[in-house]
Simulated assay, not measured.
Amino acid sequence: MTTLITGAAGFIGMHVAEALLNRGEQVVGIDNFTPYYSLDLKRARVARLEAKHGTAYSFLNIDFGDASALTASLFGKEVDRVVHLGAQPGVRYSLENPAAYIHSNISGHLNILELARHRAISHLVYASSSSVYGMRSDTPFRVADRADSPISLYAATKRADELMSETYAHLFRIPQTGLRFFTVYGPWGRPDMAVWKFTEAVLQGKAIDVYNHGDMLRDFTFIDDIVNGIILALDRPPADDGQQKPGGFATPHRIYNIGNNRPEQLTDLIRAIEGACDRKAELNLMPMQDGDVYQTFADIDDINRDLGFAPTTPMSVGVPAFVNWYVEEWSKHPGYPVAERK
């Protein structure tokens, strides 16, 4: 069994690849190392898997937004399933570089759909986002809720991906599962996310920018729980049975929320980081940023009922695990910014 993972140099992509490799499967990973955040971190993730798993892991430096390059790079390679996690991430960055989102998240998603169509892929699992829910006041967010009022281009591209996938499921009967991710954190995470930024600032004695004066709720989900959910979904593709599935589709296509179902105040996260670092944080309280949402809160009843997904890692365990990785491993890695070492 060979699984293609896009965004394989990314945070979630690396962990999913490792989980599949640990099961004895073959993985082909692709990524093009966009400089949205540290390339050293991305390269370190890839190098870690290559060193540990040898020929079971094949990595290709390729831009899946380039259809010709994608086809050429995979020529002669067997692919049974696809976990499509690659995308241009970030809500705020979409205000600065919208073209990057169209290239990766729209054209790139189409290219993966075409690959799945022509390769007769047995299951395509793809990343969507809780951002599709927009600025909702009613919680928790349910997959059955309307998702047609995005407040960022990033969110709009992710909703467009879901609709494109439904079209291909209808026309070509490609089994697909879309996963609406909420806030994911853990070892080897992303430097642009709150857990990383806050931890780094506390350890370096720098002020933390806290938006909406800390009055924000996020459904923080530890990486191990997310990986478990992705693999549960991957192993059980939706049936082409004409029955309606989460997302409202009667095709072999379903959409799930994948989160922790326990939203936390941003201030609670900061206190957990302070405790794990054994240092107090200096706070720079700021207003809400354009494109941000006040709260995220996942209703996970569908994925729990269908796949048995049930996150088990509380913030009191997950945050110290991240801080320990950051201090004991990443801050000592050659790729860590020397100018910021303490």
Rank of each mutant, 00 (worst) to 15 (best):
H333G: 07
N32I: 03
F59C: 01
L110K: 08
D225C: 10
P263H: 08
Q295C: 15
I300D: 14
R43H: 08
Y57L: 08
D148V: 07
K280T: 09
T71A: 15
S316P: 03
L163V: 07
V323F: 14
P89G: 11
S130D: 13
A339V: 13
T267E: 11
F181E: 00
A8Q: 00
Y336D: 01
P320D: 06
F59A: 05
G242E: 08
V79M: 06
A100H: 12
S137D: 11
S129D: 01
L113W: 05
P89E: 07
M193E: 15
P237A: 07
A17P: 10
D161I: 04
T312N: 05
G178N: 03
G108Y: 08
H118Y: 11
D241P: 03
G108D: 09
Y154T: 09
Q289S: 04
N257C: 13
G248R: 04
G275Y: 06
Y168H: 10
I102K: 07
L74P: 04
T71G: 06
L171K: 12
T177D: 02
F64M: 12
V338M: 15
L203A: 00
A310S: 13
Y93T: 09
L234D: 02
R262G: 06
I258C: 12
V27M: 03
M315K: 12
T313N: 04
E114K: 10
D301S: 15
H123N: 00
L74T: 01
A127D: 03
G229Y: 08
R254L: 08
F64R: 00
Y57P: 02
F181V: 00
S331P: 01
S130L: 00
T139H: 14
Y37I: 06
G247V: 02
G291C: 13
D240S: 09
S316I: 02
A87D: 00
A233D: 04
D306C: 02
G76R: 05
A72P: 01
F11L: 11
T55C: 04
V327W: 00
V227R: 10
T6N: 00
L269W: 11
I5K: 03
P263L: 12
I270N: 05
A201I: 05
R48L: 11
V132N: 00
